[in-house]
Design a protein around this nucleic acid. Structure first.
Lengths: 236, 236
DNA sequence: CGTTCCCTTGACACCGATCAACTCTGGTGG
DNA sequence: CCACCAGAGTTGATCGGTGTCAAGGGAACG
């Protein structure tokens, strides 16, 4: 899946593809709510999400938590440390998750040999950056209602890109507290927003499944324009 | 300067260095408040800031503006489009600025030939990403006072990295409105925060020059930890 | 059948937005 | 050299969106 995602950027050489496949064979299971990588770590391996949900997060001095990204299958967690030295944030499994580990020395070697692969990783980083910018807009210039709407549109689009949306429904195993930590709100307020979105028949959210009932209205509510995701999927 | 910055990541081959230098020779002057690149553009050239200040920004449907990054000399503006296709945000000159333009086809070619160069660009992107995450924390989990303090710490650190700080002072040609657009606040409120910071003798800000009078206290106020900037400067 | 999360609800407080003047500064032209 | 002007900074009064605190309800799980 990760390979498929990278190839959206540029075709890889067969040997790159093969090397990646082999290297992805080290698979690890992480229980829910456990750190995959912690802030300050200097990990030996870089990780790819294969299944489940994860989140990047930072803790502020007063104890508050800010989630800066949600990770879904196909996302890499920390290719950073192939280039930078140290994790400047933590990564958490939100559900039980399975991740692939690649010894970073091997990855390093691979990427120095193959411009195409490095370029593909660079591409993935650039898309992540675009998502971060969208979050900044969310936090800075949208009210809570618009922010929740926008977040749901983003997650819907990203899940659809990897084939995990069926008839407008997707698994969304996020507590309201997690959502509030992503949007800079309180759980209480998120709860009220969700009720409003439900009462307006924009969404349905029950037992970890989100269904978008009125995509157009939700996108309007969140000022969502999918262009920034730079999806280059067949059929999009 | 840009080359020097890239070399903080990893030494480049002499021919890369030379190629970059040649290619940077196309220099353009941009008047203040003019777009360098606009959202939706598909520019022929990629740009590097050589002098002056710039900002990435997005406009939300209701007319609000959110600045997602400040660009200072040595920052690249839009290496994106070497990999992605379209600008998902605009870039604005905040002061009169001089930028270098590199035809993106040439850059493309260069980066496919040199893994080291691509890697260096990737590194620069990763640092940018870390800055974006810090902004998200700023917007989501800090009050206005902490956010302003943190922003000033960041800009101080980045300006120092490129040698543009003298005795705690740096040029900061940002109106209060620009600052408010970066922090998701209103100009009025930014004004009040600045007065507080001044009255507490943490900073001095007058006619476009910021002086940090009490770095330790300002860092405490903003919960600032420079680790995320991944500065690898001699003497740091 | 109890325990533990999580979700839900209500009352109230507060940070920052809004609106509307007023002041200051630097630049421009007479 | 002065008068004017536009843009930026400053100030005060009031409003509203979210936070805070606290209590109660529901569903999953042992």
């Amino acid at each position: 899946m990760f390979v498929a995602k990278l190839e959206l950027a540029a075709p890889l050489d067969p040997q790159d593809r093969e090397a990646l496949r082999i290297v992805c064979d080290h698979v690890r299971q992480v229980p829910a709510l456990r750190d995959i990588v912690s802030e300050g770590d200097n990990p030996e391996h870089i990780h790819l999400m294969l299944q489940g949900w994860g989140a990047r997060y930072k803790i502020v001095p007063d104890g508050g938590r800010q989630i800066t990204a949600f990770l879904i299958p196909g996302d890499y967690c920390d290719a950073h440390i192939a280039v930078l030295r140290q994790m400047d944030h933590g990564i958490l499994a939100l559900t039980e998750a399975t991740v692939a580990s690649i010894p970073h020395a091997i990855f390093d070697d691979l990427s120095l040999r193959s411009p195409k692969l490095t370029r593909a990783m660079w591409w993935a980083t650039l898309v992540d950056e675009a998502v971060l910018r969208a979050w900044i807009v969310n936090l800075g210039r949208r009210d809570a209602y618009g922010a929740v709407a926008h977040l749901f549109c983003e997650l819907h689009a990203r899940m659809r890109n990897i084939g995990l949306v069926e008839e407008g429904s997707l698994d969304l195993p996020l507590t309201q507290e997690v959502i509030s930590d992503a949007l800079g709100l309180t759980p209480v307020h998120v709860n009220r927003i969700l009720q409003r979105l439900r009462s307006e028949d924009l969404i349905q959210l029950k037992s970890g499944v989100l269904t978008i009932l009125d995509p157009a209205a939700l996108q309007r509510a969140g000022g969502f324009d999918s262009a920034y995701l730079h999806a280059r999927k067949r059929g999009d």
